[in-house]
Amino acid sequence: MIFRTLTKESLPGFLDTVSGSYRLVVPEQKGRDTYAFRPYSGFHKVAMGFLRTVIPPKQFFFPPREGLFQFTTGAGIETATDEPPSSIIFGLHPCDLHGIDILDRVFSYGERDTFYWRRREKTGFIGLSCLPDKYCLCKSMHTDFIVDIYDLFLYTLDDVYMVSVRTALGDDLVRLRPDLFREPTAGEIAEYKDRIEEREAKFTRIMDITNLADLLTLEYKSDVWERFSQRCLFCGSCVMVCPTCQCFDVFDSTDPLTNTTVRWRRWDACMRKDYALVTGGHNFRGARPERFRFRYLHKEIGFAEMHGKPTCTGCGRCSETCPAGIDMVEVVRSIRE
């Protein structure tokens, strides 16, 4: 890993150049108060101050709805043969990079998921530092900084970005415009240190996850689940926006005009009533409190049992999005009480 600096005025020129060689994706304002990752269309559209997009970067490797193959009588099974373009996603904060790390593990566990990896393998990441808002829980989840996954990471200082060049791809990117990068000065290094502390001080909300897996297990029968499930709409929004929720459904759709069948996979949510329903009508998680609880168990324990860490990256999307105002911090606090 090496460090370089890039002046703020140089960033537009750098991104312009990157977008000439890669499909570049950047955060843009989409709604009145929300953001989305979109193809780069000039620096003026880039929302440098954004905190989180509605839909996390998982959409690029694991789209909401994806055709897996098509079947036609006669031709049999045909899969897509197009090569996904080499892409760079700009503007990923540590939480989202952690989210990608978790999905990488999920989609490599057991058999590698070719559909995920065909795009993932061709994507590089430029990280961007951030300052937390009231929904950010990365500090609590220990995902507030990251040392891998990214290719370049930009730490915002007053006049420059301190750029961490972690991979050969990152170096390739820098070498697209070597004129824009230079060695950091002692003053910039000092400023970088100050910024770390300033950021620390901005975390106003902390979710205590000490022994959380144990507490969730001990409070398996707690009435907390019942209480929250009365408020929860079971709308699935929290799952859709979560950078690490990976559940999907598989189904067929046949075009009656051509009799071509496409096998799709589509995002699914464990809060859904027939998620665990089997033939004969037995439902392993029919009751709402069980489904509400399961999401927490899966985020905090399920994945950890296999990979040694919880899957919540503290990105804050679920709490910000929830139409019922259900907040992860509040749920966890209720369990601790």
């Binding site: 999920v106 989609f107 566990y109 057991g110 058999e111 998921d113 990976q246 559940c247 999907f248 459904d249 598989v250 996979r265 699914d268 464990c270 998620y275 665990a276 329903l277 089997v278 033939t279 392993f284 168990l297 899966h298 324990i301 399920g302 049992e305 296999m306």
Partner: peptide, 24 residues
């Protein structure tokens, strides 16, 4: 064990019982 299964590959999540993928 019988569980709902959409993928058989430990990815879709449907077959999870407790913390284990029934399909794997």
């Amino acid at each position: 064990l019988e569980r709902r299964m959409e993928c058989g590959l430990g990815k879709c999540g449907h077959c999870v019982v407790g913390h284990k993928y029934t399909c794997i």
